[in-house]
């Protein structure tokens, strides 16, 4: 009776579609292997060097989005956060490298503060995160326009060279992103803070029963997400040298796409930072292939959206097949039920 019992997290064919880190890792490896077939030259050093910094930025954005989605929200303030960070890291130093540290610090801290404010409104007033972050996005763009008066400022020399250079053959942006990803992944997987965040994401009510300070941790998640977007914006500003005001706009949809592809459940809780980051790499390489194949830029939207729909539909279908199989088993007297039981048992009183 126990095929589904034993190891629901273990590796089997289904788990490829089931949201474990393994599936996105395999998908990404396969994508890189077939890249030259689809578009010759898409694995050249030049192509990789052009791709990796953007993948790094998207990965940072995606892990921030993961933290919010872990708390059952959606963060639509991504564009404003990235744009504001890009402005702060350029506008504060105004080309003076001795003040770059101040700009970089502000670029991380100020988005974190705005994130905290979003989190406060969401937690305190039980408002819908989608709406709150949408409003926050407008406020952030207000500040972007107010600071720049519509004219972008260039990045300082140090920031430009730092983001363009490489250390041990790896782009610096990627190294920074890797460090942040590892730190955030460690915190979420291995510390008490991360465990509580997971617990609250899975079930705020069960966490309340356990005595956890649910609202504080929710606010923390939004603030940390803001810091991630801030770091992404600062790196992006250096890489593109003179960031335009709406530089954050193209990152919103891919950030959510990366979280979905990484397998973090939209119902919250079990999230994988690493999987989201790898999914960001996957999406960026996918774009690279589309461009290298000579297709117009617009094709990337179509490809991305089809990938999302296909992955989500397959995952949902597999899930339903699994739970139907499990239900049959229960009716037959077994006790196994893989996956959270979604349909509440009818009240038998």
């Amino acid at each position: 009776m126990d095929e589904g019992f034993g190891k629901p997290r273990g590796f089997n064919v289904w788990s490829l579609f089931y949201g474990s880190t393994a599936s996105i890792v395999i998908a990404t490896i396969v994508l890189f292997i077939i890249s030259p077939l689809l578009a010759p030259g898409s694995l050249s050093w030049a192509a990789l060097n052009g791709m990796l910094p953007f993948a790094s930025v998207l990965a940072l954005v995606a892990i921030g989005q993961t933290l919010v989605i872990q708390q059952r929200g959606f963060d639509l303030s991504v564009p404003g956060m990235i744009s504001l960070a890009a402005v702060l890291v350029t506008w504060i130093p105004e080309g003076d490298d001795s003040r770059l540290w101040l700009g970089a610090l502000a670029a991380v801290l100020i988005p974190a503060l705005f994130g905290l404010l979003s989190g406060f409104v969401v937690a305190r007033f039980e408002a819908t995160s989608l709406i709150v972050t949408l409003a926050m996005n407008a406020l952030l763009y207000g500040f972007v326009l107010w600071l720049t008066q519509g004219t972008p400022v260039g990045a300082t020399d140090v920031l430009k060279t730092f983001t363009l250079e490489r250390t041990f053959g790896l782009p610096n942006t990627m190294i920074i992103a890797l460090v942040i990803i590892i730190v955030v992944a460690f915190i979420t997987k291995r510390t008490t803070v991360g465990w509580r965040l997971t617990a609250i994401g899975v079930s705020p009510r069960a966490s309340t029963v356990l005595g956890l300070r649910v609202k504080r941790y929710e606010m923390l998640a939004y603030a940390a997400a803001g810091a991630c977007y801030g770091a992404a914006g600062a790196l992006l500003a250096g890489y593109v040298q003179t960031p335009n005001i709406f530089i954050g706009d193209p990152y919103l949809l891919p950030s959510i796409a990366a979280v979905v592809l990484g397998g973090t459940a939209l119902s919250g809780g079990v999230a994988s930072i690493v999987a989201s980051a790898i999914a960001a790499l996957f999406l960026t390489q996918l774009n690279q292939i589309v461009l290298a194949a000579g297709w117009p830029n617009s094709t990337q939207y179509i490809v991305q959206s089809l990938v999302i729909i296909i992955v989500v539909v397959i995952r949902e279908t597999v899930y339903r097949l699994l739970s139907r199989r499990a239900r049959r088993k229960i009716a037959g007297g077994g006790s196994a039920q893989p996956g959270p039981e979604r349909e509440a048992m009818a009240d038998a009183s």
């Binding site: 939207y301 179509i302 999302i308």
Partner: peptide, 17 residues
Amino acid sequence: VIATLALFMLLRGLSLT
């Protein structure tokens, strides 16, 4: 949100194509 976001991207891509 996911379904209509995917359609958002798809339609944008189709328009641009």
